[in-house]
């Protein structure tokens, strides 16, 4: 399992710069926002957390179809499915999701405080947003694993994955943004939405790999 994690991380870092494109996309989305809403710093600082979350969500969705596609192309996906009597397939998928998250989403989380500065956000808001992104984005990847597994046999599955997955990620977005705002604004609580966010991530850490494993098995036979 450790070897699989290392292999996926190495492949993700090397293969065609897929991880880098996600970060660039994230940067581009955030950079476009001030042009759209105008350079009003007060407004930017108010919507900053939400914009960072939406950017991270879109950038994560963008890279999801690569989760199983590369493995399917070179045939190693079939090997992983066949080895499922030795290693549980959901566990394998969980490891793959973690590797994918480490390579293509963790850089977004690390870059988000810097972009938060561009958006004129307060220090507490930046910290809260980065923390909620750190806790919430794994849920997006794990939900996305289901979509990626369902669409893996499609020739043009990439866009379909995003469309299918987007409705399911909306709760993550809602609680992530409300927790980020809760850290800054007084009446809104921080801990409650943050804990719900963590619960969503843990819930999908169980459900996502199991459903994705079922989908992969059905697409294989």
């Amino acid at each position: 399992m450790g070897a699989l994690f290392l292999r996926d991380v190495r492949l993700g870092l090397r293969a065609g710069g897929g991880a880098l494109v996600g970060i660039l996309f994230f940067l581009a989305v955030i950079a476009v926002v001030p042009f759209g809403v105008g350079p009003d710093l007060k407004l930017l600082s108010r919507i900053g957390a939400a914009m960072l979350w939406i950017g991270a969500l879109l950038a994560t969705l963008l890279g999801l179809d690569r989760l199983f596609q590369a493995d399917r192309d070179d045939g190693s996906l079939d090997l992983l499915i066949m080895a499922s009597d030795r290693h549980m397939l959901p566990l394998t998928i969980l490891i793959k999701c973690l590797a994918h998250w480490t390579v293509s989403v963790l850089p977004l989380v690390i870059a988000s405080p810097l972009l938060g500065l561009f958006m004129n956000m307060e220090a507490a808001a930046i910290g809260a947003t980065a923390l909620t992104l750190l806790v919430g984005t794994p849920a997006i990847t794990l939900i996305g694993a289901v979509g990626a597994a369902v669409a893996v046999s499609l020739p043009r599955g990439g866009l379909l994955v995003s469309v299918i997955i987007l409705p399911l990620t909306i709760p993550v977005l809602i609680f992530g943004v409300s927790a980020s705002y809760g850290a800054v604004e007084d009446p809104a609580p921080f801990l409650a939405p943050f804990l719900i966010l963590a619960a969503i991530t843990l819930f999908f850490a169980v459900l996502g790999p199991i459903a994705a494993a079922a989908a992969l098995r059905s697409s294989a036979d």
């Binding site: 939900i143 289901v146 979509g147 299918i164 409705p167 399911l168 459903a211 079922a214 059905s218």
Partner: peptide, 16 residues
């Protein structure tokens, strides 16, 4: 093939 994929997606979405 689409039946199983759709079924899995439907079940995941049932949380809603």
């Amino acid at each position: 093939k689409s039946a199983k994929a759709t079924a899995i997606l439907t079940l995941v979405g049932f949380i809603n």
